[in-house]
């Protein structure tokens, strides 16, 4: 009997197919490198070496991965309820306000382990708020979430320009950024984690928000597969008509899911603001929200897939930066 829902075995669907995708992507990218007259094997070597060649490089790779885990989870949570949240970018950006306010308020008087949880709650609150509005509009007014979240990215961007040039900028400074935080607003690095493997972290900003990202990934797994809310989300995601039959309130799920998604995106701001720059700068998100969409798709919206996908994208980011500087150098010679 033909079965339209035939499913590949798990190892093929979640292991082999992404692997083949990756290999094909590398081959196509290799062709492009060949076209511009460089050796693709060299490029691949520089890229992988740039991402994993040294403890410091690995630290950078995992630092980027931390950011992508948060935004990937954010997109994935919404996916499970059949919502396509393209606004993780803006939600992460606005989430930064929560982090910055907590740090500006407490950094000089409190140690980081007090500031960090408060900044986390702040980032969740602001991110969730920014996702609540599109969620509410979708639930009550039927405005499509894809459109509204994209629009909210632009509103977030303008709002942040205003805040960073007029409100949060210290007096007498020209740069659109907050003041640099004192020690209380700086997260400790995970140098001990890398030194377990005999690696030296160097200058890499790999910090404890990575551990928070792993915790968040576990939390998302519990939420989606082990809670009643997750059950309702998945029912709605797979079949809105069955959800209606089962008495699940669609507006409620849309709003709640968008707020969770926005909260996860907001937490991303902890990593660059408290972990690397120790201040909030203009455009600190740098497209991580959009990378989150790719991470969620590649990780099949499962936390166990999102973490490796995020590390892969972290590797691509860090490796690309390194190989670019290598190329420039060889041309200069």
């Amino acid at each position: 009997m033909s079965n339209p829902y035939a499913k590949l075995p798990g190892w093929a669907e979640y292991g082999l197919i992404p692997l083949i995708n990756l290999v094909v992507a590398f081959l196509v990218a290799g062709l492009v490198v060949l076209l511009v007259g460089e050796n693709p094997l060299d490029a691949a070597y520089h890229m992988i070496n740039g991402a994993f060649g040294r403890g410091e490089y690995i630290g950078f790779t995992l630092y980027y991965a931390t950011t992508f885990i948060f935004t990937g989870l954010s997109v994935a949570v919404a996916f499970h309820a059949g919502l396509f949240n393209i606004g993780s970018e803006g939600q992460a950006y606005i989430g930064g306000i929560g982090v910055a306010l907590a740090c500006l308020w407490l950094d000089q008087t409190m140690p980081w382990y007090i500031v960090f949880p408060i900044a986390m709650l702040g980032s969740i609150a602001f991110g969730a708020l920014w996702a609540f509005l599109p969620g509410w509009l979708q639930a009550k007014r039927g405005s499509h979430i894809v459109i509204t979240t994209i629009m909210f990215n632009f509103i977030a961007s303008s709002l942040m320009v205003y805040l960073l040039t007029r409100v949060l900028k210290p007096l007498g400074s020209m740069a659109p950024q907050t003041r640099t935080f004192a020690e209380g607003g700086q997260l400790p690095k995970l140098d001990w984690l890398l030194s377990i493997f005999g690696l030296d972290i160097g200058n890499a900003p790999f910090n404890i928000s990575f551990l928070l990202a792993i915790l968040a990934a576990f939390g998302v797994w519990v939420l989606i597969w082990r809670t009643k809310l997750g059950y309702e989300m998945r029912t709605m995601g797979h079949s809105p008509s069955a959800a209606r039959y089962a008495g699940i309130s669609e507006p409620r799920i849309i709003i709640v899911v968008m707020m969770i998604s926005g909260g996860l995106a907001g937490m991303m701001a902890l990593n660059p603001i408290m972990g690397e720059q120790f201040r909030m700068q203009l455009d600190f998100v740098q497209g991580a929200g959009f990378v989150g969409i790719a991470v969620a798709l590649m990780g099949r919206s499962h936390p166990a897939g999102i973490i490796p996908a995020a590390i892969l994208f972290g590797m691509l980011y860090q490796g690309a930066l390194k190989s670019r500087s290598k190329c420039r150098r060889s041309h200069a010679i």
């Binding site: 797979h238 079949s239 039959y245």
Partner: peptide
């Protein structure tokens, strides 16, 4: 198929 069951569950 669409109301009584969620086929992917």
């Amino acid at each position: 198929h669409h109301v009584g069951l969620v086929l992917k569950f």
